[in-house]
């Protein structure tokens, strides 16, 4: 087991190295760079050959004149000291910017995920138990309907009908806190914050039930058809006990694989929801960094996401052996 973990960890470092090298190379060779974009938008720097010199001068400031591999080596040297560098956009440390964007994204994602799990897992179980009955059919129809509604549309409908004041005026039109909240006490501030989160959380969750509910339902159905369930029933156990004690716990094992996507998923924001509700989260940070070719920010987000994904996969594998003793981890990979 120990050997296995060591081997896997070493492999993670190698994978991480390749991921970052690849990401860096892709950003660098993609058309457009920070300086040209910044000035191209402004357009002023198109006044001929003298300005070409100025452009080169400015590229030097950001190390864009160096070959890709040298640039990567410099980035790596900083990264191993946990220095993600300075954001091109506003000259502040990348970690400060991530530190500003991450908490709100994390809160939104944790709340959304809890809601998604609380609603879809029971729904999946009930659907499996009442397979092909009315509840199963209707609930899956509704879930898939919700699943197919686009976020930007629902987000704007929610804003228009529930926040704009033209129909209802129940919620704020975006942002994460009211102007008056800065000076208020903790409790009003918390209420204000939750009040701002309602619409974004609805937009983030409504479409996500379908996948998990169907997943749970499929697992559950498989477990129910096992012989030991029949044994449990033959023993004369109540249906409730059979489903919740024997079947449910075993049906959770495949859910462990979802762990791998859970960790990086917590960090990622969605550009559309964040932009509709004016939430300065990770999605917008990443999106904007990519559009402006802000390499230090892009690299930091990619690297963190890669680390979390790899850690998630490892954690999932380890958990497997815990929840299902039949699975043994060998050092052979």
């Amino acid at each position: 087991m120990k050997k296995y973990i060591v081997k896997r960890t070493l492999l993670i470092f190698l994978t991480l190295f390749l991921i970052t090298l690849l990401s860096y190379t892709i950003i660098r060779i993609a058309p457009g760079d920070y300086t040209t974009l910044k000035l191209g938008m402004e357009g002023a720097l198109k006044a001929g050959s003298i300005s070409q010199e100025i452009l080169e001068q400015e590229k030097k400031l950001y190390g864009l004149d160096k070959p890709v591999i040298v640039g990567y080596a410099e980035w790596l040297a900083k990264f191993v000291r946990l220095d993600f560098g300075i954001s091109r956009k506003d000259g502040r440390p990348v970690l400060t910017r991530i530190g500003e964007a991450l908490p709100i994204t994390l809160i939104l994602n944790v709340i959304s995920m809890i809601i998604i799990y609380i609603i879809s897992i029971p729904m999946g179980i009930v659907s499996a138990v009442k397979k092909d009955k009315a509840f199963d059919r209707v609930s899956s129809l509704i879930l898939f309907l919700l699943y197919s509604l686009p976020h930007f549309w629902i987000g704007l409908i929610l804003l228009l009908y529930m926040a704009s004041g033209e129909y209802l005026n129940l919620f704020p039109l975006g942002g994460i806190r009211s102007d008056w909240a800065a000076g208020a006490g903790f409790i009003p501030r918390l209420i204000d914050f939750c009040w701002h989160l309602v619409l974004p959380v609805i937009t983030l969750t409504y479409g996500e039930f379908a996948f998990l509910a169907r997943y749970t339902r499929a697992n559950m159905l498989e477990v129910i058809s096992q012989q030991y369930i029949m044994t449990a029933r033959a023993k004369g156990l109540s249906n409730k006990r059979v489903i919740f004690i024997h079947a449910f716990r075993n049906s959770l094992i495949p859910l462990v694989t979802l762990m791998a996507t859970l960790l990086p998923g917590l960090l990622g924001g969605t550009v559309i929801v964040e932009s509709i509700f004016s939430i300065p989260g990770m999605g917008l940070l990443a999106y904007e960094a990519i559009l402006s070719r802000d390499i230090p920010v892009i690299m930091a987000i990619t690297t963190i996401a890669a680390i979390l994904t790899l850690a998630g996969i490892l954690a999932a594998d380890l958990l497997y052996s815990l929840v299902d003793p039949r699975i043994r981890l060998e050092a052979k990979i």
Binding site: L156, G165, E166, L173, S275, I276, S278
Partner: peptide
């Protein structure tokens, strides 16, 4: 003077009306 940063113009238009 408060400059409000709003990324989505449609949401901003709702704020204007409100």
């Amino acid at each position: 003077v408060v400059y409000k940063i709003i990324f989505d113009p449609s949401a901003a238009f709702q704020m204007l009306k409100k």
